[in-house]
Design a protein around this nucleic acid. Structure first.
Lengths: 202, 202
DNA sequence: CACCCTAAATTGACCGGCCAGTCAGCCTCC
DNA sequence: GGAGGCTGACTGGCCGGTCAATTTAGGGTG
């Protein structure tokens, strides 16, 4: 299905693109945006520097594409998990757990997302990723709104609560992913508990 | 007293140094370490590029000096507040509040500290600021240990709890300082409450 | 007070290295 | 054999760092 109507050429190009994005994420996470060089990324992907420019227009484009692709994959996984969750409680857990699991598997991605480009770390500020953030915020808001409507959650101002919950999750994620000293076995459960106290019916 | 034994020249040099450190913090926070140029910092301090190198050996030195000076000032304020706090509860509050107040006044400093040089954000990792972190950790540990000894606090493993509390404070600070959308009126009180629940006698 | 004279502080043009981005040619596969 | 993907030496600009030239401060002298 993913191959529908695609020539051998298309497939090869997609493969190369994906290889480059992977290499880019790795090197950007390792060295930081400025210290990373196109040569390093190309070498890591096993191609020459010029090849990178056949697939991406500039270093910044490559960076943004690498970041965006990773975040889109995360969001797909979140959506997948959410679909299977029957109650608001389970949905919130899915929203949290999917993030922890995904970023545990892709610490590079989180490291870039959180460390590089300060303005990206505060998603409300206008940035290249505002649309992605907005979409997840809406998702969370609808989980809250549905839960309140059905009586599973205590009434609360939905947008500001969603924002708070979102920030809390990212903050805990940073703790978990960036600080290797992770003595806490399953931080996602702790985050959920904390949030749940705040929004479950007394 | 601060002028004891200092010539006019010394005072002028200190003033210039301090001006440069301020400008450096500002520009580094605004543009990030790599994107910031010495020319920009010099211009912001109202001097020429060459002058910067009369006071600091290199860009990195300047950066580290700017960061260190800011952190030392914070620690001085923390120590001052702590000295006035009679009980372990008040001491913990002082430890938290001093940080929130100081960084609210100096968001640039926090932005650099947290955003730049990922390895600096995790102070346990060996870095240029390990000594400063260690000193504050010891301070916090002694607050906890004293409190436990005097019965004001519930017994707990001191070093790991101190670490946890320290991380929690930094995490909440990041929330507060980096996200301009600070709808929460006094986050420091919330942090204190949260920590207090964990360590006060049942 | 005017005038120098020296030393120190400051300047900014310049250098060199680094790296994003280019492109003329090569190579490979059909 | 040729079309298109790939290469990597090359270029141009940027910026950290330098240093010879210039300005400023200040104090000694007539």
């Amino acid at each position: 299905m993913a191959l529908a109507g695609k020539t051998r050429k298309d497939v090869l190009q997609e493969f190369r693109t994906s290889e480059l994005l992977d290499a880019a994420r790795h090197v950007f996470a390792l060295r930081g945006y400025h210290a990373a060089t196109i040569d390093q990324i190309a070498a890591h992907a096993g191609v020459a520097k010029g090849t990178v420019y056949l697939y991406f227009d500039s270093k910044r484009e490559l960076f943004l594409a690498a970041l965006r692709q990773g975040i889109l994959a995360l969001h797909a996984e979140v959506a997948h998990q959410l679909r299977a969750a029957p109650t608001p409680q389970a949905q919130l857990q899915a929203f949290i757990n999917a993030r922890f699991h995904y970023f545990s598997r892709h610490p590079d991605l989180f490291r870039i997302y959180y460390t590089e480009f300060p303005q990206l770390a505060t998603p409300t500020a206008s940035s290249e990723f505002h649309d992605l953030y907005e979409q997840q915020a809406k998702l969370l808001e609808s989980v809250l709104a549905d839960g309140i409507r059905s009586g599973h959650l205590r009434p609360c101002p939905v947008p500001s609560t969603a924002r708070l919950v979102y920030d809390l999750i990212r903050s805990a994620l940073a703790q978990h992913i960036l600080h290797e000293a992770a003595d806490n076995p399953n931080p996602e459960a702790a985050v959920f508990q904390f949030i749940w106290k705040g929004i479950s019916p007394s």
